[in-house]
Amino acid sequence: MELDLYFSNYTYVIIFVLFGVALPVVSLTFGRLLRPKNPYDDKLSTYESGIKPTGEAQIRFHVAYYIVAIEFIIFDIETVFLYPWAVSLGQLGWVGLNAMLIFILILALGLGYSWKKRVLEWN
């Protein structure tokens, strides 16, 4: 019974995902019957405020984006640890609390270090 309920909950998730995929696929497929199709070169060129596009757009971009991504991963992993801890804090008591406070302190030190190193500046 318990397991049945568990599966039915996740069946809902699967149904929702399928509906989410079906809506764009179906409406775009049937939309083909309604919309005109008249492509020519000028229409299919990349938009660049009306002038002829120069060069590629898929270029290397600023390193600041990568640094933000790395910082994000560090903190995202922190949240992965925080959630199970938060659920069970009632049973963990002071020991669990101290362990997590030390963990947060280390991360806060890391954040302070990157702050000091001006990694978080954006320009």
Binding site: V21, G31, R32, R35, P36, K43, L44, P53
Partner: peptide, 24 residues
Amino acid sequence: LIKEDIIPHAADRKVFVLAPIIAF
């Protein structure tokens, strides 16, 4: 719904088509 569907030449077609679905 009745507007023409334009996929530019320079676009990466597969990813271009997939992106709005992934977002929705």
